[in-house]
Design a protein around this nucleic acid. Structure first.
Length: 419
RNA sequence: GUGGGCGUAGCUCAGCUGGUAGAGCACUCGGUUGUGGUCCGAGAUGUCGCGGGUUCGAGCCCCGUCGUUCACCCCA
């Protein structure tokens, strides 16, 4: 009887050994700066009430209108696998009344997100993000801190070929004034059907068109940056000043467009140059009305989401991922059933001391076990047979040069495995 | 949702103008009894993605289908 194999669902990313070590390292590198800045973990469900996203992220966005994994649960509720992180954080902050305590609320998260898109390089249906949110304060210094945290994460990985693009989408007043002129400008262009439809949903989208003729046509379009209200402008200038003080390099991109409707004010994106079409490795911004829209207080916030998968691809592209990172301290090769029992208890003791200890299970030939020890990258090997059990004395072999020395089993915990 | 490339052993691939499958790596065992990395020898592994068609004969040609990949769209 032979069963058919089952493949992973289309477009998901997964990280099995030995590559998983690099993934883990990248993810942790992105998380560490947030923790060091006093942000605390928020662990949220991967599925939420569909309304959270349709109302929070915006009905008109691509993400909501055609990329969500939405289904009905057994109670007839409409459930959606989270396509992004901020809305869920807001929901939880409101639900747990975190916004009634010390402000800002500073949290970080890490986990899987889902979008039903056509997969391609760097774009998956299940992907991983690390994000932070700072909620409840308008201070431009927080904008700068949040951006700097993301930047430190990428630096920690060692990435160099990326840039931080930044702009301000202004407040409601700024955008209203700009919109009038932008629509007027767009009405002078001749657009194909699809483009006209996009312009109707969000005229800013036209700034993002990749076709040369559209880029040219949009060159004279009025820029939102020139319509910033005095408050928005001074806030943005402050943010830039703080970034300069932090020595975080940035380039202004007044034509930046983001796909989520809730962004206002400071908005940014990290773009990597070695990645192909999906070059954004992180992005975020301020969101003034989101919390209120979701039934909470009228508090602003700022945050980002960083793509772990893409950061890993970027690190690979820059040659920052070493081959086999895994290694253990000690490899135990037991010969016979008695020895296996002894190996298990030796391993248990050493593992408790933080010494990475593996055992060659199964009754394989000694040569095969030695090969396995070699492959595992273990620094030391001990063969455990009847003689050793009887004498309580083992030969410990250093794999780098083959040197052996004699040690009492009872003294193993004091052995210097790091040499 | 739209368009292009590709689908041969676990992996990377070869397979000439159609004649019923190969290499390297990896894996297992062995090269005198219990010590790896090099070397040598032996071995296992494929419904050539799937279905149909053309042909005496198809991995190679045609059609369909599925998968995968890259790009558009959009985004992390």
């Amino acid at each position: 009887m032979k069963f058919e194999k089952i493949a992973a669902p289309k477009g998901v990313s997964e990280y099995a050994p030995p590559d998983s070590a690099a993934f883990e390292w990248v993810r942790q590198s992105l998380i560490d700066p947030a923790k060091l800045a006093g942000y605390q973990l928020i662990e949220l469900p991967v599925f939420e009430d569909t309304t959270l996203f349709s109302r929070g992220v915006g009905e008109s966005t691509d993400v909501v209108s055609k990329e969500m994994y939405t289904f009905e649960d057994r109670g007839g509720r409409s459930i959606t696998l989270r396509p992004e992180g901020t809305a869920g954080v807001m929901r939880s902050v409101i639900e747990n009344s975190l916004d009634r305590g010390q402000l800002p609320v500073k949290v970080w998260y890490s986990g899987a997100f889902f979008r039903a898109e056509r997969p391609q390089a760097g774009r998956y249906r299940q992907f991983y993000q690390v994000g932070v949110e700072a909620i409840g304060l308008d201070d431009p210094a927080i904008d700068a801190e949040v951006i700097a945290i993301a930047d430190r994460g990428f630096k920690k990985i060692g990435l160099k070929n990326y840039r931080l693009e930044i702009t301000s989408l202004g407040d409601a007043k700024s955008r209203a004034a700009h919109r009038v002129d932008l629509l007027k400008f767009i009405s002078t262009l001749t657009l194909d059907e699809a483009t006209a439809a996009r312009a109707a949903i969000n005229p800013l989208r036209l700034f993002d068109d990749k076709r040369d003729e559209m880029k040219q046509a949009m060159e004279k379009a009025p820029l939102l940056m020139d319509y910033l209200s005095p408050e928005s402008e001074s806030h943005f200038k402050q943010v830039l000043a703080y970034l300069a003080a932090l020595k975080v390099e940035y380039v202004l991109n007044p034509r930046m467009v983001r796909g989520l409707d809730y962004y206002t004010g400071t908005t940014f994106e990290f773009v990597h140059s070695d990645l192909g079409a999906q070059s954004g490795i992180g992005g975020g911004g301020r969101y003034d009305g989101l919390m209120e829209t979701l039934g909470g207080q009228n508090l602003s916030g700022i945050g980002f989401g960083l793509g772990v998968d893409r950061a890993l691809l970027a690190a690979k592209a820059e040659g920052l991922i070493a081959k086999s990172a895994f290694s253990s301290d000690l490899f135990l090769i037991p010969l016979g059933d008695n020895a296996k029992g002894a190996a298990l208890s030796i391993s248990a003791q050493l593992c408790e001391l933080g010494i990475v200890t593996e055992i060659a299970f199964g009754d394989r030939a000694l040569k095969g076990a030695m090969k396995a020890a070699d492959k595992s990258g273990s620094r030391y090997v001990i063969v455990l047979g009847e003689a050793e059990l009887a004498s309580g004395q083992v030969e410990i072999k250093r794999m780098s040069d083959g040197a052996t020395s004699s040690v009492k089993i009872s003294d193993l915990s004091g052995f210097a495995f790091d040499k």
